[in-house]
Amino acid sequence: MHRYFLSLICLIILPLTAAAKTLQMVTDDYPPYSYKKNGSISGICMDVIQNVFGEHDYDFNVLLYPFARAYVTARDGENIFQFCVARTPEREELFQWIGPVGPSYEGLVALRKRADISIDADSDMSAHTIGTVIEDVVDQHLSLIQEELGLMLDKASGYRQNIRKLMAGRIDIWAGNIFVAFQLAEELGYDPEDLRVVYTFPDLHKDFYLVTGLKSDPDLVKDLTRIFDSYVEKGGYEEMKKRFIKSRAFGFSEQ
């Protein structure tokens, strides 16, 4: 009888223990960093997270949202994690930061045939319609100087939508991560060689992070940070970043 009750207690406790190890995550459609493939979330950021936490008994429940929705969900929720999020001064106090999970290279991309588009300084951007994604790091950056420079920002909810608008001539410039622009163009059936980088934002060339809101359990965040720090200290992240940048070099076509 005692064995029966002991076994019953174990059956009750074990699922609860397993559930406590499942991380609730959100991300957006952001290839090659994060995207849905064969019903699962794939991409370089997901690969990093799996490699880092795979040996530490953490599982993942990942949902794919538009970026703005994922951003607000993680920021305002409790124990909800988002990737891939660029770290900026404006965002610093809104989240608890864990990572990094991938390299960020932000800029402006135009059609190669648009020889009339030449941008050497922020002030040159005002002559063109720029497509941004709501709450994306470049959208936030340009929104801060929009009124001062008279920028024409065409805001959308997704990156694929903006690539289609660029190719159709509905916007002059695609704003965001350079790798994403070239990857999406290829996935949507366009020739990446038809694109060129016309401007970059070096101050935004940092890393993407796994983040969670200020309401999240600090002990959980501390444990995840410890695991990530170990991964970085052992050189795992730098090795991944070198391989990734080498494989995506076409994204830095000559302006």
Rank of each mutant, 00 (worst) to 15 (best):
F60A: 01
F60L: 09
V62H: 02
V62E: 00
L63V: 07
L63S: 05
L64Y: 02
Y65F: 15
P66Y: 02
P66T: 14
F67E: 08
F67D: 01
F67K: 13
F67W: 15
R69D: 04
R69F: 05
Y71Q: 04
V72T: 07
T73S: 11
A74Y: 00
D76N: 12
D76C: 06
G77W: 05
E78C: 12
E78V: 08
F83Q: 10
C84L: 06
V85L: 13
A86V: 15
R87F: 12
P89Y: 13
E90S: 15
E90T: 14
E90N: 14
R91M: 11
E93G: 08
L94T: 02
L94Y: 07
L94E: 13
F95K: 09
Q96H: 15
G99F: 04
G99W: 11
P100M: 12
V101G: 12
V101R: 10
V101E: 14
G102M: 03
G102R: 03
S104V: 10
E106R: 07
E106L: 11
G107V: 01
G107Y: 08
L108P: 01
L108F: 15
V109I: 13
V109H: 07
A110R: 07
K113I: 14
K113C: 05
A115S: 15
A115G: 12
A115Y: 00
D116N: 15
D116P: 10
D116T: 13
D116Q: 09
I117A: 06
D120R: 10
D122P: 01
D122G: 05
M125S: 06
S126Q: 13
A127E: 11
G131T: 14
T132K: 02
V133Q: 13
V133L: 11
V133D: 12
V133M: 13
V133I: 15
I134T: 14
V137Y: 07
V138S: 12
Q140W: 01
Q140L: 13
Q140H: 06
H141I: 00
S143D: 14
S143A: 12
L144F: 08
L144H: 02
I145V: 13
Q146E: 15
Q146C: 05
E148T: 15
L149I: 11
G150R: 11
L151H: 09
L151R: 09
M152N: 15
M152P: 04
M152Q: 15
L153R: 02
D154Q: 12
D154S: 14
A156I: 02
Q161D: 10
I163N: 09
R164Q: 11
K165S: 05
K165F: 07
L166D: 08
L166R: 01
M167E: 13
A168Y: 07
A168W: 05
G169A: 06
R170P: 04
I171G: 08
D172L: 07
I173N: 03
W174I: 03
W174G: 04
A175I: 04
A175R: 03
A175Y: 03
A175M: 04
I178L: 01
I178A: 03
F179T: 05
A181K: 01
F182T: 03
F182Q: 02
Q183Y: 00
L184T: 01
L184H: 03
L184W: 00
A185C: 09
E186S: 07
E187R: 08
E187H: 06
Y190T: 02
Y190E: 07
D191W: 04
D191P: 07
D191G: 05
